[in-house]
Write a protein that binds this DNA or RNA. Structure first.
Lengths: 237, 237
DNA sequence: TCTAATGAACCTGTAATACAGGTTTGACGG
DNA sequence: CCGTCAAACCTGTATTACAGGTTCATTAGA
């Protein structure tokens, strides 16, 4: 049973072209890295100007369905959370989503990624996760570095869950998290509390390395309890 | 503390323009419906041609950050799952995500939306959710209608959870689900099984209406057990 | 005074052309 | 067989043009 990939509401040429190109990817069964026809070719085939084709390709590039590059033919792209991140940030900037809602979604999903990561992580992944946890403590004096290791740790856990959907969503949240993280860090009342947070991350990492899904999920949950409390105290929720 | 909204890797004019426009939305604190400067104005302000501005606006329109329309100035857009759906579909078409992974993510998230919906749904939402469940049984002979009510029910639950992040993600999955749902429906061995599935939806709806989060979550979980089994039997997982 | 019509100004959608670079490819020479 | 190089190909950007949709203030009418 064939299903049209997108709504057929092609009032304007550009969305018609977008549909045509996504259909082309599907019909020819193109995979990431495969090259699409050149703009001029598409222009001729779709009977629209190159202007329209370019705007359509830009749309697809914005969604990271294709990749563009000077001189290079458009290629099918790999999944990437950049586009997702932009959308969530827009939702937050325009008051359509608040930080607490993002955190609740994160907590829901990351309890699961922690569970799955504990069950499925490779040895290399376990080492990487623990490395990030330790680095948080080592770089204690440089909050920006702590943050990046924090985010990288969560993303590494999501990847170790072996479900790209989770990795995508968690990665997407990081755009917003980068804006709130410093607030949470500062809102901790003492360095002791900050060390405790790092310690919690390390325990989480070790539970995943040890292959203990229940403990990993519980620690992840506690992590969000603590973080939410810090953000609440800072008044940004 | 100001945070640059997007990476500053503006090798090409268009991504620079995209960044400039998103910054503009943030800096001016624009909300959905607010109008952006006209293309010509942006073109002058950013010192690039209208071509570049248009491609940038198209990119943002693809992500549903702005809305375009003939003769109308670009406006800031409301959150919408269309763009998300396209990305997930692309992921599935290009073998970067498989159906089981989507279902696992759905199950994780929807256990939570069921819980929250049971706690937070309004009376009107409860009625709407039950209405969709009943409609699934009433339209039993028209699978396409059953599917739409099924999807609408899940989306209504997500909305009743009062977290737009969940609604967005669940809505995004529906693009893919529309392609697999008929397979699951056919794979049921008998109409009895199909009726049982509808009954399960009705029980779920009633648990949410009754404000019972535990039962709602448990029923949602069972729903996914059954659905996954059907899809497995059909061999698409 | 209020409302409805109207037209001008404004704006976007699409097309065509032009050219500066970057990329790919195949031919040629070693 | 391999490396080099130039031609062909392709994209990024700018400019101009015009059809048709939208907005808004002014004007005519009730």
């Amino acid at each position: 049973m064939l299903i049209p990939a997108a709504a057929p509401k092609s009032v304007d040429f550009v969305s018609a072209a977008v549909t045509a190109i996504t259909d082309l990817i599907r019909d020819r069964d193109l995979k990431p890295g495969d090259r699409l026809p050149a703009e001029a070719t598409l222009s001729k085939d779709l009977h629209v100007s190159r202007t329209v084709v370019r705007e359509a390709l830009r749309s697809l590039a914005a969604l990271r369905l294709v990749e563009l590059g000077a001189g290079k033919r458009p290629t099918v792209a790999e999944l990437d959370d950049d586009a997702f991140a932009l959308m969530f940030q827009h939702g937050v900037c325009t008051d359509q989503i608040d930080i607490q809602q993002i955190y609740d979604a994160r907590r829901t999903i990351e309890a699961r990624t922690a569970t799955l990561a504990a069950l499925r992580r490779t040895e290399a992944e376990a080492r990487a996760i623990i490395m990030h946890a330790k680095a948080m403590e080592q770089d204690f004096d440089v909050p920006a570095k702590v943050m990046e290791h924090d985010l990288a740790l969560h993303l590494a856990i999501a990847r170790a869950s072996r479900n790209p959907v989770f990795a995508l969503i968690i990665g997407a949240f990081h755009g917003v998290t980068r804006q709130t993280w410093p607030v949470g860090w500062k809102s901790r009342s003492s360095d002791d509390e900050r060390h405790a947070m790092n310690e919690l991350h390390l325990q989480l990492a070790e539970a995943i390395a040890a292959g203990d899904p229940k403990v990993a999920a519980a620690l992840m949950d506690r992590h969000f309890d603590v973080s939410l409390k810090a953000l609440t105290r800072a008044g940004i929720i």
